[in-house]
Design a protein around this nucleic acid. Structure first.
Lengths: 217, 217
DNA sequence: AGCAAACCGGACCGTGGTCCTGTTTTAGGA
DNA sequence: TCCTAAAACAGGACCACGGTCCGGTTTGCT
């Protein structure tokens, strides 16, 4: 998710957030001044537009700034750095996935047995990351931030919970990291694109692994 | 390993390589002209020196060039880009690890049963990556190259071989990727440094995972 | 209205990377 | 041994971009 909150730590309530009822993990509401919030929105919209036009690799901070009609400094003040902006862009899309596994319909969402939810999780993430791989990969320029980001923490917590709920023994948290490792965008991209491996095989490996860890389907 | 071989593809024999009897996977020998090879060495030495002085983050291509007494263009001609240079620096150190698991003493090297070698592999890699995490992390600026690099491929092949030899069922190659995922530098660094998790726990998780996959100790 | 805090915008800097000119070195055949 | 063509080189101008900084302005609160 956001991944960088350089300025003010004050927390509050009124935030121009969308109607996403669940508010999965959202970026820190951190109330912004009216103009700042407006500019933030403008920036994200401009960036989103430029993203489809030029691709993540050619997305420059200056272009985003001028497309949004604000100064360059504003972009950095708001998002910290390029990675922060990309993370914010990603965050918006990430919420769909989060909503799906936190409160969507079974077997991914609550309602199904933990083991089934675990099995459903892999393909869901693979598909999600496949759809946004360009943006995600661009985000990885700063490798350490990958794991510090709220979205990652949420996935770990979610999987660890399902593992425990499914009665899987062992270090649930580390097993969660391991499982997430198989879904890593760069890895999936390398295997599927560079090495021509069909996604079916990756998904099969996921199911196999989950099953072996003790979560019968 | 090298990771980038921008120029001439000609392959040959005589290379000024060191006495490393095994020649684990070494970078493509690709015979360079005498002066080119000499400059390559100078550059790597200069970079290595600057690395300990300034840290990977402050290692600039221009500084390396001038410290080696060559022109900036030469650095890029040789290594392609910054990541290529860092990868080359890493390659040198990587060979020690490769020698250890390819031809070193048991239980890491040949001579021990596959299961034991598998168990020994995790801690060895964790330690190796811990020692060079700064350089490795700097290398990750280009996430896709991580998996394309020969060193990674070698590790995958090695683990997949051990898995098969140990009689582990399933998709050996993908299991190998999964196992390597637990050893990822950025992940290990995040867990141990940022989250204060003791390395023992990471190693225990490795052993547990290997065992669960069917490789008894 | 008045004030502090937050913000805006753009000048500015360092670095990665490209490219070009003229020069030096090497390899290998006569 | 010498000569020649090809390859590599020095080195610096040049560009684009990420990121920082600061002076002037706006905003929100009292």
């Amino acid at each position: 998710m956001t991944g960088s909150v350089p300025p003010s730590p004050p927390s509050g309530a009124p935030d121009g957030r969308k109607d996403l009822t669940l508010l999965p993990v959202g970026e820190p509401p951190q109330q912004l001044r009216a103009d700042a919030a407006r500019n933030r929105t403008r920036l994200l919209e401009a960036a989103s537009r430029l993203l489809v036009e030029c691709g993540a690799a050619n997305l420059t901070m200056e272009a985003v700034a001028s497309a949004a009609g604000v100064g360059k400094g504003t972009v950095f003040r708001r998002f910290g750095d390029r990675t922060g902006l990309l993370l914010a862009l990603l965050d918006h899309r990430e919420q769909q996935l989060q909503a799906a596994f936190l409160s969507g319909p079974p077997p991914l969402g609550p309602g199904a047995p933990a083991a089934q939810r675990l099995h459903a999780f892999g393909p869901a993430v693979i598909r999600h990351e496949h759809d946004h791989h360009e943006l995600i990969l661009a985000t990885r320029a700063d490798p350490l931030r990958t794991y510090g980001v709220p979205a990652y923490g949420l996935r770990v917590a979610h999987i660890a919970m399902l593992l425990r709920e499914a009665g899987v023994e062992g270090d649930a948290e580390l097993l969660a990291h391991t499982l997430l490792g198989c879904l890593d965008t760069a890895l999936v991209h390398h295997l599927s694109v560079a090495r021509g491996m069909p996604l079916d095989r990756l998904e099969a490996a996921w199911h196999d692994l989950v099953t072996r860890l003790g979560a019968e389907r």
